[in-house]
Each structure stands twice: as C-alpha cells, then as structure tokens.
Computed example of a mutant assay.
Amino acid sequence: MSKKRLDDTSKFLSYVLRHEPQAIGLQLDSEGWAGVDALIEGAARDGRQLTPELIAEVVASNDKKRFALSEDGQRIRAVQGHSSKTVSLQLAEQQPPAVLYHGTATRFMDSINENGLIPGARHHVHLSQDMTTAEAVGQRYGKVVILKIAAQDMQAQGFKFYQAENGVWLTDQVPVGFIETLL
C-alpha cells in the first residue's frame, strides 16, 4: 500500500468521521462510531474505493492513532477532534499531569492572549503531554509557539480534563491565567 494512498485515506476518514459524516450519507452514533460497511458504501458514492483491509491498515499505521476499530472490526470512529454536533464522547474525567502543552502559530497569539484557548469548531481544546508533540501540531499552522498549561492548577479550580484513547488530553477551555508562552 502506498504512503500516499494511506495518507489520502486518513485525511478522508478524518473529514467524515470527525466533521462531515453527512457528506457521504454516513450516520455516527453519539460516541462517534460508524459501520465499516456503511463507510465503504458512502465512500463509493463519493467516488472513493475503500476496503476493510485499507481501513484497518490506516487505523494501524496512523502515527497519531486518530482512529479506532471495534474489536470485531465492524465499526470505526475517530477517537477525538470531532466538530459534528451528533457526537458527544462520554470520556471519564481524569487527573491530568501538572503541566500540559499546546502547539499553535504566532498568528493566533493575540486571540489566545485575550480569550485563552477555546475549542473553536471542535468540542474540546487539545493538549499534549510533551513539547515535541505540541510543536509538531503547531507546525501545521505556521511559525510555532508552544504554550505551557498549568493543568493541575486548572483542575483544582474546577476545570475538567479527559484523555482520548490516543493519549491526547482534552478540556473545554484554558483561561489566560493558566497559560505560559514558552517559544
């Protein structure tokens, strides 16, 4: 399987499983699950050829572990990053590490300094346990800025944290007072 085919399929899966399932007539349940057969049928109507084997390879090879297959291989979902209003992941609240990180671009800093971190179209703000991951995320948007988040201080003030299956930390927002700019 070519890397390009895997990458293209991963981007397509991100689009339909996180943001626009209706674009291919796909229905997600409240936890974001969709039937693999329904995904393949919807993709075919959109002119894309998917197979169960291709989908399984994308899930297994995705470096960010964005997707999960059910144990029987019949259902698939994105593990976080949803903007679809039909999905409401029921994640258990977790004790975060003392510090988490967020990678962004310098062009967003005026807004962040004024409003803190807000989820935008997504359901949650995404945070990383290490600076390397945060930097990789931030590079997608321009000149990188790494933000250090006082996660346990936030939790002590009543903010809730969740951890997705792929290790990404999620919270509803990060107020300005809990953010320190590192780079």
Rank of each mutant, 00 (worst) to 15 (best):
L17R: 03
S111E: 12
A105Y: 07
V144E: 01
L28A: 06
D7F: 11
A105D: 08
D37N: 10
S70F: 05
L89P: 04
Q163V: 12
H124W: 15
S88Q: 13
G120C: 04
H19D: 15
D29T: 04
E20P: 00
R66W: 12
E53I: 08
G120V: 04
W33C: 02
L54A: 01
V36Q: 03
V144R: 10
F67I: 05
A151K: 00
I55W: 00
H102S: 07
N166L: 00
K64Q: 14
P119R: 08
Q173L: 10
Y101H: 10
S88F: 11
A150W: 05
L54C: 02
Y141R: 10
A151W: 01
T86I: 13
Q139Y: 13
L182V: 15
G103P: 08
Q95V: 13
Y162N: 08
A98Q: 14
M1A: 08
D46L: 03
L50F: 08
V87A: 06
T86C: 10
A92L: 13
D172A: 15
K65A: 12
P175F: 10
D46W: 03
R75H: 12
V174N: 02
L26S: 00
L147Q: 07
K11V: 03
E53M: 06
I112D: 06
Q22C: 04
L13M: 10
Q94E: 15
F67S: 00
I55P: 01
L170W: 02
K3C: 05
H102I: 09
Q152C: 09
G167C: 09
F108T: 01
Q90V: 12
A156T: 08
F161T: 07
R66K: 11
A136S: 13
G47D: 00
V59Y: 03
Y141I: 06
Q152I: 07
P52F: 06
E41P: 00
N113E: 14
N166R: 06
L13I: 02
E165D: 10
S70C: 04
G167R: 02
L91A: 08
F108G: 01
P96S: 07
Q90D: 15
S2V: 00
V168Q: 11
D172L: 12
A150F: 08
K65P: 02
A136M: 12
M131I: 14
T9P: 00
I146L: 14
A121L: 14
Q80S: 14
L26M: 04
K64P: 01
I55K: 05
V176S: 03
L17E: 02
H102Y: 09
T133I: 11
E114R: 15
S83A: 10
L39D: 04
D46E: 12
I146P: 02
A134D: 07
Q129T: 11
R122N: 14
I55M: 07
A60P: 05
S2G: 09
I149R: 05
A44E: 11
P175S: 07
G42T: 01
L50S: 00
G35P: 07
V125G: 03
K11I: 02
S14C: 13
G116A: 08
E165T: 11
S61C: 10
T132E: 15
M154C: 09
P175C: 02
S128H: 08
E180N: 13
S61V: 11
E180P: 01
V144H: 05
G47M: 01
K148E: 15
